[in-house]
Design a protein around this nucleic acid. Sequence first.
DNA 1: TATATCGATATACTTTTGTATAGTAGTTAC
DNA 2: GTAACTACTATACAAAAGTATATCGATATA
Lengths: 121, 121
Amino acid sequence: MNEVLELTRVKECSGEYVLAIHDTMNVINGKWKLPIMGSLLYGKKRFKELEREIPGITPRMLSKQLKDLELNSIVKRTVYNTTPVTVEYELTPSGKEFRSVLDVMVEWGMQHRKRVLKKIR
Amino acid sequence: MNEVLELTRVKECSGEYVLAIHDTMNVINGKWKLPIMGSLLYGKKRFKELEREIPGITPRMLSKQLKDLELNSIVKRTVYNTTPVTVEYELTPSGKEFRSVLDVMVEWGMQHRKRVLKKIR
DNA sequence: TATATCGATATACTTTTGTATAGTAGTTAC
DNA sequence: GTAACTACTATACAAAAGTATATCGATATA
């Protein structure tokens, strides 16, 4: 096989990978995105519900991060014209699928913890 | 089944999960840890090699992040008493295992990108 | 009339993270 | 002797992220 072509393919491939990882990082960066997504995994939530469920978050941060998540198509915001307005946040299909990432993060985190504790004892 | 006990178990469980995710986040936070780990996936590297391979990183950041990764048992630092000293960095078993997290991050990132593009077109 | 709720936004501030630039001690090559 | 390489460290600064606190208009409740 042509080695130059092969190298090009590898480079393109790793380029795509880097992009994909970058996208994923963008979704989870900062202190509050994962707690918000974690809370929304259990169903739709309103602003104040999220504020109450996520200890320590300020409305400013909640608002900011929700906007960010909406921009990245992770969260869908729906406004109902009740009085006063009701606003509901829910995960998009992409947001729900993110669970698979969380799952391996949990698995790796627990394995890592085990390995580190083994060495210390 | 006792509902109170069940609730306790669920809470403990989700507590462990949150801890594990927190640990995982600690490994990848900041701008440079993933590029460093990515570079080390292909084998041991010396300080200057990493500096050359990771575009834009300053020696200060490289040094800092390597120390962080070493503290978290992701990277192992070995000093050889040659003249001048040679220092080699490599991934620990935990560090190598982190590939599984990267893999789903890549997969999710690519799927997410597809879903988003579909909507725009 | 007073107070509380909802879904935020405004302003000011602190902390964390990252950048820019220079310098160190020891060694090797020209 | 001077320039370059290795593996860093020091200092100063800029930018990003997060916190604290107050406020908004509209409505519902006591």
